[in-house]
Design a binder for these strands. Structure first.
Lengths: 103, 103
DNA sequence: TGGGGTAGTCATAAAAATGTGACTTATTGT
DNA sequence: ACAATAAGTCACATTTTTATGACTACCCCA
């Protein structure tokens, strides 16, 4: 008996892409914070201790282009930027919750 | 108006740990294959194209110590090793499925 | 006019994840 | 006895991620 060489082989797992959207040191945390309120750059920088501009910048940019977050310039009083969850971003939340259960 | 400095700050997100269990190039695929049948090392090596012994060895070891897989020596005819899903591993499957939906 | 806030970029460095290829140990089929 | 299969390990190279610190540009307030 040699090892059976299954034929249904190596297509990449479809969950893998979605998993990438959540990969990285800060993304899950950012998502959870975004659930509660729109995010602002410097605020995040203070909230997530141990992070830095670069890390955040990268995470936010990636999450934006993954359509988890929407970036908006707020044309008001103290002109600033807000990131808020998209539909897709919100859809991620229950998945995170499920994951929490099986820690 | 300065950025509000929310106080509920930087505890790490609880989903993050579970996310780590699935992180890595091969783990999701391994999990899906494990769902169908018990796994064998050399078989995986052939099924997952693009992989290598090292990668697989690391992935399997980590998944074993994360208690997603159980390693067993099969004391039979052609003496070999099988990895099969644990309860916890099985619990991961529905999460993967959910993730797939929002790709 | 100067200091502080907001939102970044850039070059670089350090650390972690992945890949390559040679080598090992034990078992089995011929 | 010999070659092949199974399941790895080990040293090393390459790639990807993450961190550091300096710097930019704009607005706002006194």
């Amino acid at each position: 008996m040699t090892t059976p060489n299954n034929t249904d082989a190596g297509e990449t797992c479809p969950a893998q892409q979605a998993l990438k959207l959540l990969s990285g040191k800060w993304k899950p945390q950012i998502l959870r914070l975004a659930e509660k309120a729109p995010l602002r750059f410097n605020s995040l920088l203070r909230q997530l201790e141990g992070t830095n501009k670069q890390a955040l910048s990268v995470a936010l940019r990636e999450m934006e282009s993954a359509e988890l977050l929407q970036k908006t310039v707020i044309q008001q009083k103290p002109l600033h930027i807000e990131y808020h969850l998209t539909e897709k971003g919100m859809a991620m939340i229950p998945v995170l919750r499920q994951l929490e259960k099986l820690t």
